[in-house]
Nucleic acid binder design. Structure first.
Lengths: 158, 158
DNA sequence: GTACCGGTACTCGGATATAGTATGTCCGAGTATGCGTGG
DNA sequence: CCACGCATACTCGGACATACTATATCCGAGTACCGGTAC
């Protein structure tokens, strides 16, 4: 059940990219250096976010990453699903239909209660993540951090 | 992020044990046979639930498992935590304090927003699981299943 | 002087090793039973 | 006949292999730039 640490990296990177001036691209090594992360491994997560349509990437000189949409339209759930995958964490194996105490297909027309409860918990978790956007995360950063980024990022981006 | 399949096994076993007549113990092989599960591996999860105080186990002849408490006082969260562990799925590594863009300890007096959001989602998930008890899961089983269990279980338990 | 072309340097993307955890299995510790024995 | 002690069979508990996924890294595909060259 442990959550990948890549989620933390992805969210912080998304927050940082949200603070880059419009039109600016930020290179992979700049992102990695800003947070002290291994660039080679970070690339995997950035790649996943790009595939999921959260980031937009450009190759070649003057290339780099930027958000694919506005920070207001990107939720934390988008980032988590981009990295962890959209598959449900719980997959019912219908063990109620197996073994000596197996239920008949008739009795299984309704979804297994265990599966239902787990799905509800999953949905509650997703709803919580969906309710917060990247823009809101950035807005709640300390003022000093935002101002420092506003000063440093134009130099790192291009 | 994938959830262990042992959770499904544990919940179904807890539901079944809740239907055993009071005072009756159910052996491990009976549980495994009822659901068609590998007995050797199931023992690991039953062991975890016993350690967590969800189940009570008795060794020797006439031994077996029973619920440690009433089905009304055992929540699905209890079972999930017993098997998956109580550790939070997300652990903040404070990458905001690392790298060239590191924030000062002053700016980090407040908890990292990323960590906060993830904790809220985790708490939402737990609250959802906590709101459903084993007794309620059993109550929502099809009548035919409950009656069949009421007939079969006294033979399997002792 | 200008437009075209080729080479070059730089960026991201996917294929490739390694480590840690979930999965699956086995044998040993502990216990109530049942029998044999002695009083 | 009764009580005690011992051997036994049966149960769960934890130590031991294996498979899969997350972690970590590297090199190749693609692109924009820059300089040289021909007109």
């Amino acid at each position: 059940m442990k959550l990948s640490q890549g989620v933390e990296w992805g969210l912080h990177c998304a927050m940082l990219l949200a603070q880059v001036p419009p039109g600016g691209l930020m290179r992979r090594d700049a992102l990695a250096g800003h947070f002290g992360l291994p660039e080679a491994y970070l690339s995997k997560h950035l790649q996943a976010m790009t595939r999921a349509g959260v980031l937009y990437a450009n190759s070649g000189p003057k290339g780099g990453y930027r958000l694919a949409r506005t920070p207001e339209s990107i939720t934390t759930l988008d980032v988590v699903e981009a990295i962890e995958g959209t598959a449900a964490p719980f997959i019912c194996q219908e063990i109620r239909q197996r073994g000596t105490g197996a239920s008949s297909p008739e009795e299984c027309r309704r979804t297994c209660m265990v599966s239902t409860v787990m799905s509800q918990a999953d949905e509650a978790c997703r709803a919580s993540l969906r309710s917060v956007t990247i823009a809101e995360l950035v807005a709640r950063l300390p003022d000093s951090v935002r101002t420092r980024n506003a000063e440093r990022l134009p130099q790192l981006a291009h």
